[in-house]
Design a protein around this nucleic acid. Structure first.
Lengths: 361, 361
DNA sequence: ACGCATTTTAGAAGCGTTTCCATAGCAGGC
DNA sequence: GCCTGCTATGGAAACGCTTCTAAAATGCGT
């Protein structure tokens, strides 16, 4: 026996066939006499035998591995905080079921190449992380028949792809309604990355609520962003040099809100006294900012967990019927929004006041 | 042909043997006549043939996959920000070399079980993420002969395990020296998690520098932390109710510094006017804090990149000689430290002053 | 037309499992 | 003593590929 012990080695040592060893080691020991079982167990133990999972996968035609694919668009994991929580949820579900994860980060946008990389027999199913518009990942049906679920993108029906996501529309609706209830009527908005469905869904929810409440939308207060903090800062510059300002600016995510806040500090615009700001996502730092951010929290961990569950369901039952699961967010009120009635007019600053949502510094 | 096309299907269609197809598809086409090559290529194309990587791995006895193992101690990826950057670096190196990553998160601390999970033939080598003291991962030699490198822990020599890490000692030395140069002589310290080597290395560097400069160490100002932000807040509480305070508190990482700062805000201790604070790591938010944090930055991405490189070297050459690579950090001076000479005494507060490192707010 | 060196191609033995199916051995019923 | 029905075990094909080695086909000089 050279190299690692194999089934054959164990069989030899136990004086039986490899079938016997295989069966016993897989827990089918009721088929055998007790002393045979013992023999085999001992032999395996003594040799330090460990089944080779590759060979097993080949024979079983199942790998007990699922692929997690990052959209080539945001290939750096670091820059995709979203992925972490989701990954954690996935791991949590998979761990006790003895599934492993294969992390796949395609760098090309050629769908054929991407899918050659993904669907090569090494995984039983795939979780697509936040595919953006035009992503090669969405060409799925043309290239693969693997069970698949997407996560982090609420996809239009025509993709016929199961997906789990936070409910962008309902969460943003809730947040905007709350802001309006605080008395705000002059509301600015920083849009997310135009290739993300979430950006459009959040913006649309924003517009709908304003419409519904009869609040006019001033397009010069609606700025383009890209979900990155710098784009928040740029939006601030663009907005804050206008002659008339909104009383609140709602960013489509926390990162942009942070960039915005930073710029406010530089330009010495007091938040929330002069201008209120909201975020979206409740990223880990939102609470620890100089001005703790009012935002919406959602359970991305849960998203990952459910995604894994859906996927395993698909794998095990073969039921590949596309399903959509949306998870509700929760309003998190901190200190970055002041009630608008405290402001006599956008130009006049009330330096001191204290109510819920006001500054505590 | 039912199911996915195999080599046999392609061979049949091209009218040749599977050896021929295998060779040509692996780029050994110089062995064959040009028209044969064409035939095969076409047949493969038409059938949409994709090599099965599992079968290939079995035959080649190489999987082109490396395992990334998280210490069971910090099983939640989310809570281990360190891992993200490192993972990115690993991915960056592996990607062009057509290696994939298998993410392994053992939940047990039984080394045998852990290693059964890791070393089952499905990977060619393994990166151990930040193994802590007593981690089953460090029992490596007893259970596996896989090429391995550790990352994020500067291990004692006796583990005989290659590892890549930031240079905790030199970085902390640099930071402490800088703080002393700012005139501080009353220095507090918040220790990291006692199971991490880095915590001890950083603390030791701290103590050494103070000794070297003849600065007394006041043990009541040296608090135990665990690298989490809450432990920083607890340390603040413990420290700030003492009658005499240091002029600066150095936290063993940014997270604790943040917790500390938060608590300072609550207790209305002005930073840096009343008390200076330093961090360690330059996490992404350090810059965006209310009081931008003075800290040390190191390139964890680089750590991951080099780790992957080391590992592939081991895999390809079989040279398993343990190596240690330490990466230097860089001082990042922001606004959380004020020069100590601006303070007449810890009790007297100079409200306004401006130098590098001073407040700009 | 023959042998020899070369170029092309194919056969077949793995890789380490799983699993279907067959076969011993052995009671018991007749 | 023969068939039946167990239980306990083993043989062998299959999974889809790689690769060593052998064989067929070709070209050349003679």
């Amino acid at each position: 026996m050279r190299g690692k012990p194999t089934l054959r080695d164990v069989a030899e040592r136990a004086g039986c066939s490899i079938t016997t060893v295989s069966n016993i080691l897989q827990g089918r020991s009721h088929l055998y006499r007790e002393d045979m079982v013992h023999q085999v167990m001992r032999a395996a133990q003594e040799l330090g035998y460990r089944p080779n999972s590759i060979a097993r996968s080949l024979a079983r035609r199942r790998t007990a591995t699922i692929g997690v694919v990052l959209d080539p668009q945001h290939a750096r994991l670091t820059h995709n905080l979203y992925a972490h929580d989701v990954l954690d949820g996935i791991l949590a579900f998979l761990e006790p079921r003895d599934y492993d994860i294969r992390l796949i980060t395609p760098r090309t946008s050629d769908p054929a190449a991407v899918w050659r990389r993904i669907d090569n027999g090494s995984i039983d199913g795939v979780v697509l992380i936040a595919p953006v518009m035009g992503s090669p990942l969405l060409e799925w049906r043309h290239y693969s028949s693997l069970p698949a679920v997407a996560v982090g993108s609420t996809l239009p029906d025509e993709y016929r792809l199961s997906h789990i996501d936070i409910d962008n529309t309902s969460a943003m609706t809730m947040l905007v309604e709350w802001v309006i209830q605080q008395g705000h009527r002059a509301i600015g908005y920083i849009k997310g990355h135009p290739l993300h469905w979430s950006a459009h869904q959040r913006e649309q929810a924003f517009r709908r609520v304003l419409d519904r409440y009869g609040v006019p939308i001033r397009e010069e207060w609606v700025l383009q962003g890209d979900y990155g903090p710098e784009s928040g800062a740029r939006a601030a510059e663009q907005l804050l040099r206008q002659s008339e300002l909104p009383t609140v600016v709602m960013a489509a995510n926390d990162d942009m809100a942070i960039g915005f806040l930073q710029q406010c500090r530089t330009l010495e615009i007091a938040v929330p006294e002069r201008l209120s700001v909201t975020g979206f996502d409740d990223s880990s730092w939102a609470e620890r900012m100089g001005i703790p951010l009012t935002t919406v929290r959602h359970d991305r961990y849960q998203v990952g967990y459910l995604a894994a569950q859906q996927l395993l369901h698909q794998i095990e039952t073969g039921d590949t019927h596309p399903q959509r699961i949306l998870i509700n967010g929760a309003l998190v009120v901190r200190h970055s929004v002041a009630p608008a009635y405290a402001l006599a007019s956008p130009a006049t600053l009330q330096p001191a006041f204290s109510t819920e949502g006001g500054s505590k510094q």
